[in-house]
Design a protein around this nucleic acid. Sequence first.
DNA 1: CGCCAGGTGCTGA
DNA 2: TCAGCACATGGC
Length: 286
Amino acid sequence: MFEVAAPEFSLQATLSSGQTFRWAERHGSWHGFLGSSVLKLRQEGDVLFCESSDSALTLEHIRRYFALDLNLPEILSSIDVDMQIHHAILRHRGLRVLRQDGWETLASFICASFNNIKRIEGMIERLCQAHGDPVSLNGFRGFSFPTPEAIAGLPERRLRSLGLGYRAPYLRATARLVVDGRLPIEQLRRVGYEATKTALLGCEGVGDKVADCVALFGFEKYEAFPIDVWMERAMRYYFRHRKMTRAGLHDYARRHFGPYAGYAQQYLYHYMRTGRSSVERSAYSV
DNA sequence: CGCCAGGTGCTGA
DNA sequence: TCAGCACATGGC
C-alpha cells in the first residue's frame, strides 16, 4: 500500500468517463489493471491510496497513467471558452485524460465501434479471460489484456464466439499489422497528431472516430477530438439547425478549443451522458 | 419487440 | 466530397 498526492483529480470522473473499459467500482474502491499489475485504488480528498499485486509498480507509474504531472487548471482554463464547456467543467472538474497502453487502446476502440459501453466491457472482459494472463491481488482475480501476438494467431470464428461480431476480422487484421511491424505502434508516442492518425487509419475497422480515440487515450495527442453520436448531440449547441458532417464538426471543435481540444471532448462527452440536469437536457436535443 | 450503441467500409451520385 | 446502406450483438 502506498499513497500518491493527487490534487485537481477525480478518480471517479476519470475512470467512469468512457475512456477505459476495464475498471470496476466496488465498495468505494476501484479495481483494475495497469500494465500487468492488478490495482485497487481509493481516493480520499487529494490522496490516492494504492494497493498493487506487483511491487514493481511505483508511484511514478500511477502519476504517469493518471497524467497527474499535467497542470489541469491551466488546461481547463484554456478550453473554458463557452457556456456549455463551462458547465461540463464545473460538473466534472478533476477528470483527466489517461495515458493508456497504445495497443490495448487500439484493440479496445476497434471493439467499441457502433456499440454500447456495457457490451464493450463484456466483450473485452471475455477477450481477456480467454487470451490474457491471470493476475490476482488478495482476493481480486483478473486477466491481463491479450498481447497482439496472442490475438494475431486466433481464427476469426474464435473472436466471433467471444461476441465481437463483425469486428472480429478487424481486430485480427490489426493485431497482425502490429506483430508484422507494419504498424510501428511504439513510435507513435513520439510523432505528432497527424502522423499518428494517418498510421492508425491504415488499420481495418479504424476510421476517423476510432483513430481520434486511440490518438487521445493511447498516445497523448491532446488535440484529437473524437466525434461519436454523443458528441454530435453536444455540438448541436454550436450548430442548432445547420446540418454538419462529422468532419465539419471535428474541424470546428479543434479550432474552437485549441491544443487541448481532446480534454474538452472528454468533459463534454461525460457531461452529455451523465452530468446534465433535465433542464439542460431539454435545452438542446435528446 | 423495436431502438440504440464512443462507426466503418463500400457504393453510387 | 457526400449521402445511403449493410453490418453483429445484446441491453434496455
